[in-house]
Structure formats: structure tokens, C-alpha cells
Design a protein around this nucleic acid. Sequence first.
DNA 1: ATGCCGACCCGAGGTCGA
Length: 264
Amino acid sequence: MRIATWNVNSIRVRQTHVRRWLERVRPDIVVLQEIKCEAHAFPAAVFADLGYKSEVVGQKAYNGVAALSHRNIVIHHRSLPGLTPDDSQARYIEVETEGLTVIGIYLPNGNSGGEAGYSYKLAWMDALCDRVEALLAEDRDLVVTGDFNVCPSPLDFSAGALPPTDALLRPETRARFRRLIHNGLTDAVRALHPTSPAFSFWDYQAGCWERDRGLRIDFALLSPRLAECMVAAAPDRDERGAEQPSDHVPVVVDLVWPETAKAA
DNA sequence: ATGCCGACCCGAGGTCGA
């Protein structure tokens, strides 16, 4: 099973990129972030042509997440359970496919809106931790994937790419990311690539892509049984070199169930 | 030290992203 995440920075601008990428990579399920449109404006027909159904949590101009799959998927939540007050921003989608729960997130950046903006990020992360704990307590097979807007360690960003006080780096941010991991989730890319940066984002500005000055902020976190099935996990760097690219690239994880592995 | 770029709003230039 191939699971992927991609912050596309506007699905209407990037729809041909996503279509071409679906044909090349053929994920079973991909969650998208920053689609930046309402559901009625989502180009679902473009992906339906390739056999992909869409579930969309839209918002005008900002945020917006979606899930595309050529399998049957059921949407369970369109906002983050337990976040108070209710999240008016389209940042969370929770779907189920063949017994697997997939949570797609666009976690708040936390650098805008002053301390209130940062508090919102921390509250969002607290609610996400609680949601993950509840699902793991039910022994669910779970993937939490998307744009986390967190750089957990110095390996996850180029030196000087972010000021030390940035919301992606602050100790309170990192502590909450560690809490997610300590609940029993495995950071798929880091588990398979312990020493390479494996960036997933390069700013449009200052020639960051050409200088490989990037960040690793897009993750796929796997519950224990799924982590044992992981055979590959990596950012798809090729997409950053495309014409008019998103500033993020897809992150792709491959899982192979033990029965399949024995047969192969 | 700051801005660089690109997308949104809409039809200028402000706002946001990370």
C-alpha cells in the first residue's frame, strides 16, 4: 500500500502537476494540504478521470485539505476532534480505508498573529496528541500525515534557514511533536533515513531550491503494526524542479503486509 | 538586518506562508 502527503499550495494552480504525479506514482491514498479553495471549486473531475475519488474539506483562499484514493474511503471527521473552540479553519481530515485510519493535517504555522497565533498552534497540537492517543487506545492502525510545520531536530533544517525563535523550532512546539512520537508513532522517513536531511520544503525566495536550503516539515507517522510493514519512505524531490512547482514536495510511504512479503 | 517569491483576495496592493 502506497500512502502519500503533499502540500500543493493551491490545487487549482497545481492540478496538472497532481494529475501527472498520480499517473507516475499511483498512490493508494494521498492527502493534500493548502488546496486554497472551497469544495465546489476543487477539480475533482481531473482526478476522477484517473480513478481517484476525492474527499474535500475546503476553505476560501487559505488552508484546505483533501484526500484522494482509488479505493473506497469513508470520511469520519472534517475538523480536529476536541479542539476548542471548534476549528473554523480547514486543516484536518480523517478517513478510513480497508481498516486503516488516515489523518491528513495542515498544522498551523504559528508565526503569524503574535502570541495568540502561537497559542493556537500549541492548542492544535495538544488536541492532535489527544486524538492520536484515543485512536491508539482503540488499537487502530493509524497514519498521521501532512504538513506539520515542525522541525523536530537540527537535521531537519538547513543552518540559518530559520531564526532560532521561529514557531517551527520553539521548544514548546518540539515537545508536542515528541509527545506524538512517544505515544508510539514512527516517523517513517527518519526511521529509514537517519542521517540525511530528507527535506520536503524549499522556500521560493533567495534561491533556496538551487542552494538546497530546505526544511523537513512534512511527515508520515505510523502506528506500531504499520511501522513493521514499512519498506520505503522518502520525499519525492523531483517535483520541486517542475515548472511552477509547489514549495513542498510529496512524501511517499510504502507498506507491505507480511502475507504479501512471504508470497513475494 | 531585511527582502527575495508566489498565491490569495480582486482588479491595487495588502496579507499570508515558513
